[in-house]
């Protein structure tokens, strides 16, 4: 088996604020194989976005990577210089942001924003760069790309802008794309189109994908593997079908329970009580303890992540065992 595209090991990204250290990402490990899609799932504030920014090396002060390694094709990104990192960014590793209305610079034309990306990493003529930009726009399904290149971002709809952003990410056929909730801000129909588009592109180019989202239904259709994050930690991970069918962690089970679906019509939607705790003062022991229906004495200690069957990991003292009823 070839080396994985990305291997994150014990990543810790902390924000050193005046109010204290915020452990936005705390001991996170996962692997993304070549051409595979990893779904990184969690509520807002669970650290999934910061994980994404850590990989691409764009954690802004007061945050910084405090420990662990990010092995990208064997190189540790956490140890690279800013210059080396910039070489990879947008080239071998690309990122797509959440809000397409905000990711394109409003005062620069689309062609400027695309061509500068090409020229940042390849020594080609402006004309070749424009050619590449036009081809990529066509590839992501933007009609009459020649004309659209000369437009300003505000002349595009949200879905079109996200396609442009995706096109920019694809310009250098990267080995890894970190997509941070790229469809959350879009209509459901557009969301579907873009998901299908991305899936197709990933499959044809062999690009690996980290899809950050809070939406389990998106992950279910798109991802190969899934990692569930809670309060800066991965609480459960494994193959998508296994995790979604047989969640081990009570939090995963709660998440699944709160997705509305046709099968559960008539039943009241289940919800996870309480809110994500503030990362500044996490309760001692398991961070999910205060909201967990299965919490007990031992949960006052901090649980370690441990193996639970082939390819599966869980961070819980009292995982939901086979046969036990799912409680939320």
């Amino acid at each position: 088996m070839a080396a994985p595209t990305l291997e994150v090991r014990n990543l810790r990204t902390h924000f050193f604020t005046r109010a204290g250290i915020v452990k936005a990402v705390d001991d996170v490990s996962f692997t993304v194989e070549r051409g595979k899609v990893l779904g990184l799932v969690g509520e807002s504030g669970s650290g999934k976005t910061v994980t994404g920014f850590s990989i691409i090396g764009l954690v802004d002060p007061p945050g910084r990577i405090a420990g662990g390694s990010i092995l990208f094709q064997g190189r540790d990104l956490a140890k690279l210089s800013e210059e080396e990192m910039r070489d990879l960014r947008g080239n071998r590793i690309a990122m797509i942001f959440q809000d397409p209305m905000m990711t394109l610079n409003p005062v620069l034309r689309i062609d400027t924003q695309m061509i500068e990306t090409v020229l940042a990493h390849k020594k080609v003529s402006r004309e070749e760069a424009r050619q590449r930009a036009r081809d990529t726009l066509g590839m992501v399904g933007i009609p009459s790309p020649d004309e659209r290149l000369k437009a300003y971002p505000h002349q595009f709809s949200g879905g079109m802008r996200q396609r442009v952003a995706i096109a920019i990410a694809l310009l250098h056929e990267p080995d890894l794309i970190v997509a941070d909730e790229p469809t959350t801000a879009l209509d459901v129909t557009i969301q579907g189109q873009i998901l299908a588009e991305v899936q197709k592109l990933a499959a044809t180019t062999g690009t690996s994908l980290i899809w950050i989202t809070h939406d389990l239904s998106v992950v279910a259709g798109l991802a190969d593997d899934i990692a569930v994050m809670y309060a800066g930690r991965v609480v459960e991970q494994g193959a998508v079908s296994e995790v979604l069918d047989r969640p081990l962690h009570p939090y995963t089970s709660g998440l699944i329970g709160s997705v509305p679906s046709r099968n559960k019509r008539g039943e009241p939607l289940r919800q996870i009580p309480g809110m994500t705790p503030s990362l500044l003062n996490l309760p001692p022991g398991c961070a999910f303890r205060t909201r967990c229906p299965r919490a007990g004495e031992e949960c006052m200690a901090e649980p370690e992540i441990r193996g639970a069957g082939p390819g599966r990991m869980v961070r819980c003292f009292r995982p939901i065992t086979e046969g036990a009823e799912q409680v939320a």
Binding site: I56, L58, R86, D87, L88, R89, G90, N91, A94, M95, F97, Q98, D99, M102, T103, L104, N105, P106, Q113, E116, T117, A120, H121, A165, I168
Partner: peptide
């Protein structure tokens, strides 16, 4: 702004 972060994510100098 996101677009500045995005510009940095594109690997611009």
């Amino acid at each position: 702004m996101d677009y500045v972060k995005f510009a940095r994510a594109k690997g611009l100098s």
